[in-house]
Amino acid sequence: MPSTQIPPITGAAIDPPSLRPPIGDAVIERIDPQALRARLEALKADGFTMLLDLGAVDYLTRKPRFDVVYHLLKLPARAASVSEVGTPVRMRILCGVDDGQALPSVMDLWTSADWAEREVYDLFGIVFEGHADLRRIQMPYDWEGHPLRKDYPMRGPERERSPRPAFANKSNVVAGTPPSGRTLAALQEQVKRVRAQDDKTP
């Protein structure tokens, strides 16, 4: 068998999907952002009733930087048996988009795009124009940065500065010490005292 130990690809132009013949898991198409909306409308009319997934990949040094990936599935929009469903066509649409560039929302075509687009916006910072309610979905609303970008540090930019979240200090309870204020040493001392007393009482 051929060795799987292929030397790593170096250099700026990392674009794995273009480097290798597709594996045959789906019909793959690459589309420009301008043509995206029209193509997806045509596909929807063609019977791709399901937008299975919508995700993004960050190729940090490539131009355009991001790939937004649409996975479509052609299923009959009515009750159908196993043989009627058969092996539905899978389609994968890759759309290169640059930092700061917006994509048209497809929420009106497939309602499920709602959360998927919000997630891509939250984690990658790609804006979808025409989305009714584009706000963060996974991270807190006041979070800064988009965590799944390749230049976002794994542990988050703030972690090194303060291991303890700020809200921990904002309550009447001081974290780390019991509400009674007694420390472990005091506790052990108390246990010892109680035991000594117990020994004395008959």
């Binding site: 996974q138 991270m139 965590p147 976002y152 540090p153 794994m154 542990r155 988050g156 972690r159 291991p163 303890r164 979240p165 809200f167 921990a168 309870v173 974290a175 780390g176 010490t177 019991p178 509400p179």
Partner: peptide, 15 residues
């Protein structure tokens, strides 16, 4: 999960 999303030990917020 030593990453941006998870609080590294709840003893940083409650006893």
């Amino acid at each position: 999960f030593d990453n941006y999303a998870i609080i590294q030990g709840i003893d940083t917020i409650i006893p």
